[in-house]
Amino acid sequence: MSDPVLELSGLHTDIAQYHILEGVDLSVPRGQVTMLLGRNGVGKTTTLRTIMGHWAAKSGTIRYDAQDITGWPTPARARAGIGFVPEDMGIFSDLTVEENMVLAAASGPLDPARLTRIFAAFPPLKTFWTAEAGNLSGGQKQMLSIARAMAEERILYLIDEPTKGLAPAIVSTMAGALRDLKAQGASILLVEQNFAVAKALGDHAAVMEGGRIVWTGPMAELAADTALQERLMGLNMEVQG
């Protein structure tokens, strides 16, 4: 495994009185796609939100790009190069697509070359550039959500269920964009329930159960072993894919 861009050690997170993460240990290799898998409610989203600083870690450490960022506030993590695409997309509906993108480039003006790449990956964003983001379709909102994370150079992308509830054609656009991102050398930690997408994009996989990582290994190994899938997630990728 190559040099890790992110390492979680013994990460515990509580939300109100609930103990959600119960000692997450995870290593995300640089320049590769790591799939974070598991049943609903096992703590995948909480893991991403804890890395981003939305939930404070009760104990444990988060090392990112060779620095301990456990106590850092969220904006500092974002400025250090972590891009987050939340499950609810979190677009600013009252602002236009353009304003959403300009805001996403928090450290300076939007790079035209980068914008051209984004338009190539998501053509509807160019069409609706001056439209209010709240008027976009679900798929277009998801495109905007990912495009916002791509508005600046990022070292690590945390992406939470980008294909959830989308039409197959949009899923394929989304997978294409993530493939491009991967080809550019980005490190990605991706939560994904669509196993066809997971299988196609993932280099590594980490499976969660009860707030812990219970299995890590190459994605290809998990994809090939239906018994392992059944045991870890109660699912069969061959059926799902």
Partner: peptide, 23 residues
């Protein structure tokens, strides 16, 4: 741009923080 950040904060302060703005 300052006003746009304010509008972003009004809509979703978590998201504005995750982009890098000190809410």
């Amino acid at each position: 741009p300052f006003g746009r950040v304010l509008q972003a904060i009004r809509e979703n302060d978590f998201r504005a923080e995750a982009i890098g703005y000190r809410v």
